[in-house]
Every structure is written in structure tokens, then in C-alpha cells.
């Protein structure tokens, strides 16, 4: 009897031990909230056209400047701007775009790399960009070359309604299409985490249909609310920035690559009395706690550097066997210049 008891006890002990070991393995370590992303990307889209939508271009360019300042290189920013406000004939100060009536910062600057401009900003191109199904001759600078370690910041601004976002006054993307595109990205492991910001009217309707994991979404207004603009520059004659983006920028101005600000601070950046609309947040798809996620996980950039200390000590200098075949191909000349003076028409005596 005692033997059986002993055995039982022993089994219990082993079992408990197993459980203990198991829980130990699941113990949340210190760096749990640490992200395991290896690169950062940003997709910044302004979807609206025409001069009176000047503010949307200012919005998107301001965000562009901020992410660039915080370290995301141009090659990893996809900027889509559907109208060229800087060169609009109505612009009293050509080649500039300002996001403030004080006109301190020209957000157009001299190093803006627009990847998709004008009529290239379409629903089709946007969805193709996200899903990676671009035409085969697309250069790499116009592709979203993300992988399973990429954190992507998606910022959209323009005119929206309940369940759609208008592109160029002629077409719209529905929330379902956007959700499906993100799901296709997830299935192809094209991202690690996404931070989705949208500044439009009824903006929160755009993220309600998302169903893919690891997405944190925020919107400038709830369904049924309008997003409002901030102020007019009387010299330019139009509203020049939206309220939500204005306060976001004010916040981002104080962020630098080493700062410890968290995503939850970003999410509460525009209280109702400032924005007038209610800022919406969706975090049920996001696994980490926004209070513990540094803002630089999305706005900054990681670029690991490994110092090389083991050069190969080459003793014999290699000489490659050059291919003897002629590499220069003879291009058949399709066109040629005629002599400037038609001498061939004049019979030589």
C-alpha cells in the first residue's frame, strides 16, 4: 500500500515539477514588451485632390518629415501624394507647403521623395502596394519590401465616410477591402506589427473591419463625427492643417530617437476639447500593452550595425578567369542621324 502511495506521490511530484517548469518558461521576463522587429517602414498617403484640400498634403508631408527625422530612411518610406500643391498655380508661394500660419517650416523642403504622385494615387495602386502585387516592371523604390520583421506605420488622410475612404474624388476604398489587403499581408508574413493612423471624417469606420493580428489602429474621429481642420492661413487662403494631425505633430516635435515616450501617450494626444472630434483607438488586435510600447517602435528605425573584426587575410590575390566571350552585344542601330546638309542628294561632279 505504502509503495503505491509512494509511487503516487512521486508521480504527483514529477507532475508538479513539470507544471512548475512550464510556468517558469511562461514567466514574463523584463523585456517582454520589447519588440522583435528588425526594420521599420512607413506608408503615408494623401488621397485627396484639388487646391482646397491643401491641408491634407500638409498633413502627410508633416508626418513624412517627422518619421524621416526620427530615422526611417527614404527608401523605406512610401509617400503617396495625389496633388502637387507646391506647384499649384494658386499657391502664392510656389514650391512651398506650410503646415502653420506662421510659415516657419516649409514641409515641402528640398528632399522630399514622392513615390506615387498625381493620378498614380489610386485604390488599385494602394492595394497593390500593400499586398505586393505590383506590375513586374515596378522599381524597388515603389515597392513595399517588408518581411516578417517589419513594423509598418500607415498614415492615411483625405475625405472619408462611414466605411470608405475617398481617393481622388473618383473612387473609394472600402473598409472591407482595406481589411482584406492587410490580411493578405499578414498571411504572406509581410509585417510584424502595424500602427494604423487615419485622419478623415468618420475615420474609425475604416479600422472596424480589420481582422488580422498585431494591428494597433487609431482614428481622428468616431463614426458619425467629422474631423475638423485647425486653422486658415489667410495668405494662402485655405485651411492648412487638420486638428488631429496638428496635435500629433506638436507631440512628435518633442520626440527624438532616444526618447522614452510610449504609444499610449500618442493615442491620447488629442483630447476631445482640442480635437472636437473623439479620437478612436482599436487595440484588441494588438498583443502588447500600448503603455509599454515605445513610440520609436513605429516612428523610429532600427538598423542593426555589426562591426566586422575578422577580415579574410588573403594571401594569394585571386584572378578571375575572364569570360573570353564578348560581353558587349552589338545593338542594331534603329535610327540614325541624317547629315545636316543633304550632300548625298547633290550629284558629285
Amino acid at each position: 500500500m505504502s509503495k503505491i502511495c509512494c509511487l503516487k506521490l512521486f508521480i504527483c511530484y514529477v507532475f508538479l515539477n513539470l507544471i512548475f517548469v512550464d510556468t517558469d518558461a511562461f514567466d514574463i521576463p523584463e523585456g517582454f514588451e520589447k519588440s522583435n522587429h528588425t526594420n521599420n517602414w512607413a506608408v503615408l498617403v494623401d488621397t485627396s485632390r484639388f487646391w482646397f484640400n491643401y491641408r491634407h498634403v500638409a498633413n502627410v508631408l508633416s508626418i513624412y518629415r517627422s518619421v524621416k527625422r526620427l530615422g526611417i530612411p527614404d527608401s523605406q518610406i512610401i509617400l503617396m501624394i495625389s496633388d502637387d500643391m507646391a506647384c499649384n498655380p494658386r499657391n502664392p508661394r510656389p514650391a512651398t507647403i506650410f503646415n502653420n500660419a506662421h510659415e516657419q517650416i516649409n514641409v515641402y523642403g528640398d528632399d522630399v521623395e514622392v513615390d506615387y504622385r498625381g493620378y498614380e494615387v489610386s485604390v488599385e495602386n494602394f492595394v497593390r502596394l500593400l499586398t505586393g502585387r505590383v506590375p513586374p516592371d515596378t522599381p524597388r523604390s515603389k515597392r513595399l519590401l517588408t518581411d516578417e520583421g517589419s513594423n509598418i506605420l500607415i498614415y492615411l488622410t483625405g475625405h472619408g465616410g462611414d466605411g470608405f475612404l475617398k481617393f481622388q474624388d473618383s473612387e473609394e476604398i472600402t473598409s472591407q477591402e482595406l481589411a482584406d489587403a492587410l490580411e493578405q499581408m499578414w498571411q504572406k508574413r509581410r509585417y510584424n506589427e502595424i500602427f494604423f493612423i487615419i485622419d478623415t471624417c468618420q475615420a474609425s469606420s475604416m479600422y472596424e473591419k480589420f481582422y488580422s493580428p498585431n494591428i494597433l489602429a487609431t482614428a481622428s474621429s468616431l463614426v458619425g463625427e467629422d474631423s475638423l481642420s485647425h486653422h486658415v492661413d489667410s495668405a494662402i487662403g485655405v485651411y492648412i492643417i487638420d486638428r488631429y494631425t496638428y496635435y500629433v505633430l506638436e507631440f512628435l516635435e518633442n520626440v527624438h530617437p532616444n526618447s522614452h515616450k510610449t504609444m499610449s501617450e500618442f493615442l491620447s494626444v488629442c483630447p476631445k476639447h482640442a480635437c472636437i472630434s473623439t479620437v478612436g483607438v482599436r487595440q484588441d488586435l494588438f498583443k502588447r500593452d500600448p503603455r509599454k510600447v515605445p513610440i520609436t517602435d513605429f516612428f523610429g528605425s532600427v538598423r542593426p550595425i555589426i562591426i566586422t573584426t575578422d577580415p579574410i587575410d588573403i594571401i594569394e590575390i585571386p584572378k578571375r578567369n575572364k569570360n573570353t566571350e564578348n560581353k558587349t552585344t552589338n545593338v542594331v542601330q534603329k535610327r540614325m542621324y541624317l547629315p545636316q546638309f543633304p550632300v548625298h542628294l547633290i550629284p558629285s561632279s
Binding site: 528588425t38 526594420n39 542593426p304 550595425i305 555589426i306 562591426i307 566586422t308 573584426t309 577580415p311
Partner: peptide
């Protein structure tokens, strides 16, 4: 100071 015969670094998936 990095002790190495050459001053060099690389970045994963990018180059050196």
C-alpha cells in the same frame, strides 16, 4: 576602441 585590423561594419540584409 574596436580592436581590428580594419575599421568596418555591416548591416544585416543591407551590406557592408
Amino acid at each position: 576602441k574596436v580592436e581590428s585590423p580594419v575599421q568596418a561594419f555591416m548591416s544585416p540584409k543591407w551590406g557592408g
